[in-house]
Design a protein around this nucleic acid. Sequence first.
DNA 1: ACATATCTGTCTGATAGCGAACATAAAAAT
DNA 2: ATTTTTATGTTCGCTATCAGACAGATATGT
Lengths: 232, 232
Amino acid sequence: MGQSIDNLFLESLPQPYRSTFRSRLEEFSLPAGTVLYEAEQVPRYAFFITSGLASKMVSMADGRSSEIGLTSSEGVVPCYHLLGGEPTGPARCVVQTRVKAFRMPFVELLKEVERSEPLRLLVMKCAQRRSMILSQLTACNRLHDAEERLARWLLTAHDLSGTTSIMLNQGLLADILGARRTTVTLAAGALRRRKLISYRRGQIEILDYAKLKAAACECYATVRNLFQNFYG
Amino acid sequence: MGQSIDNLFLESLPQPYRSTFRSRLEEFSLPAGTVLYEAEQVPRYAFFITSGLASKMVSMADGRSSEIGLTSSEGVVPCYHLLGGEPTGPARCVVQTRVKAFRMPFVELLKEVERSEPLRLLVMKCAQRRSMILSQLTACNRLHDAEERLARWLLTAHDLSGTTSIMLNQGLLADILGARRTTVTLAAGALRRRKLISYRRGQIEILDYAKLKAAACECYATVRNLFQNFYG
DNA sequence: ACATATCTGTCTGATAGCGAACATAAAAAT
DNA sequence: ATTTTTATGTTCGCTATCAGACAGATATGT
């Protein structure tokens, strides 16, 4: 392999294309709050995250918002913008916990996707997976309550980031879950009382993975399978 | 044009490919309730709808469900199943109001998408649009109440089907909106009292398009733009 | 015309989450 | 050490929706 990359999209590219492609990327470290792309705007860069978490968010006119996808090192950001239509969308993407990522100008990647078949095949598969996840979460957002969704989110965040400790306060979690901050406080408090998690001032720890999974809605397992069955 | 097709996907294929492709399709009429594909299963056929409405639905273990997408003559069904990954997903697709559609064995279309560039480009764009819509509806399902969502759904159904009258009872509407039937009764009753719609036993009429739009959430306009700005 | 099935309306109590305000606690800044 | 900022906890009244039951209305079949 030579160099370690730690982004599953890049690692899935066939050699020798992978190395050529890799040489065109620069690695950056991006703090929480960094906007990777804005809603209704053509992204400036595409990112191949190697660590950390970023959320795709949709905001409404009244300022309320909901996460529509959580992403880390499993793919490319943005994803469906690369499918050949208008490269914009209703969502914006924000770094939640400091991200390390390889970066490439978006239009450059767009052209490369047209040119390179292995790249295009991978982009299509990533977009398909995102759609599947989005499908499940659309129903989840409608049918499941705050505590179940919080448990699901924490488990997914854990799986994606590979850490048991997640740096995120309840206010941001409320935006993500599309709920009030007080609702998150209550849900998180309930999980803490049952000793499934612990937290203090923006640092959340998963204490009991199995029980937390039982407290989460079925959507967690569904989405997890979609991530796991993806690469080989 | 020669033959009238009335499916925007087919009509967007470049000639002479379109005619060749068209000759491989058979047209069918499918009653309400017909399942176009099942969750977690490889579709048997792909459909190019020319009239009528079909819903992509995600159901949970407890039997509750939510629509994740409404489709008619604007594209191909299924859509993201054609992107090259596992051709399944968490949703199933059901005919809501009798559909007329051209049909083709799914695996045959899958091969054709690999072979034919114009077909592939169109599939990718359709999948992208579906993702954009899905993104908006994911947040909508979390943030907007039943009456707003009902108004949005009726308007979208009207736009897609081209009829002011929609044949659908409140029970099915409840499944679609991911709510109880009584909640739909209340929401529909409120819209009727304000003379935005009328209905009786499964037949809903839009009386005042402008006011109904004002009663719907912003997601209606967002999704409508995504449909409109798509072909040319 | 009648019986039957289906759809719609309404009522009940229970609950989750909203929206807003304020109190407390912990970190950060000086 | 003290102040300031930020995060969390708590309370309250209110609304939407759930969950279940049942009555009434309107098609449909015979």
